[in-house]
């Protein structure tokens, strides 16, 4: 099983950028623990920043994978920047924009921004900057070998592509 943290891909421009959205909902158990009520404070459910980074990694990972028709095993290797200036409560929509800054045989560097959209007003607010580095692990420097099948881009990712109106490899 893999936890998918984006709901829909809005745009996918090969080798350039990917836009995805995520609706934050109280149906997700994790929000009930993050943060629970204390003796002095009522509960404050917000999507954890670590999962916002994961959602960006999935958005940017699809972008990097798509650049090579999903033939590479694209693994998140480094969080270069993660700067947050707002929180993500339930009922808001998060919009992830990932752009490729650099890509070569060894891996890729991406830059990304996250916006928080209030669906009641349509107003958008800057929530985070998240820059990442991905490794094409079959071309890693340590010479380690990995299984032949692509365990990164599974059907779950391809299902999101299909449901968003894009055609994954093999249709």
């Amino acid at each position: 099983m893999r936890w998918i943290w984006i709901d829909r891909i809005l745009e996918l421009e090969r080798g350039k950028r990917c836009l995805a959205i995520k609706n934050v909902t109280l149906a997700e158990d994790v929000l009930h623990d993050h943060f629970r009520a204390t003796a002095n404070h009522p509960p404050q459910p917000v999507m954890p920043n670590t999962l916002i980074i994961e959602a960006m990694a999935q958005t940017a990972g699809i972008l990097v994978g798509h650049a090579n028709d999903f033939t590479e095993k694209v693994i998140l290797a480094k969080i270069t920047t993660a700067r947050f200036c707002a929180v993500a409560p339930p009922g808001y929509c998060l919009k992830f924009t990932a752009q490729i800054e650099r890509i070569d045989a060894a891996g890729a560097a991406t830059t990304g921004t996250v916006e928080r959209i209030d669906v009641a007003t349509g107003k958008s607010q800057h929530l985070a900057d998240i820059d990442l580095i991905f490794s094409h692990i079959d071309k890693n420097m340590s010479g380690l070998e990995f299984p032949d099948h692509n365990f990164v881009f599974t059907d779950q990712f391809f299902d999101i592509l299909r449901q968003s109106g894009f055609t994954p490899p093999g249709g």
């Binding site: 290797a77 270069t80 800054e101 060894a106 560097a109 420097m141 340590s142």
Partner: peptide, 14 residues
């Protein structure tokens, strides 16, 4: 760490 070298290469290029 090994992945930092990739990061360093990207940053040097820029």
């Amino acid at each position: 760490e090994s992945i930092d070298f990739l990061d360093i290469v990207f940053r040097l290029e820029k």
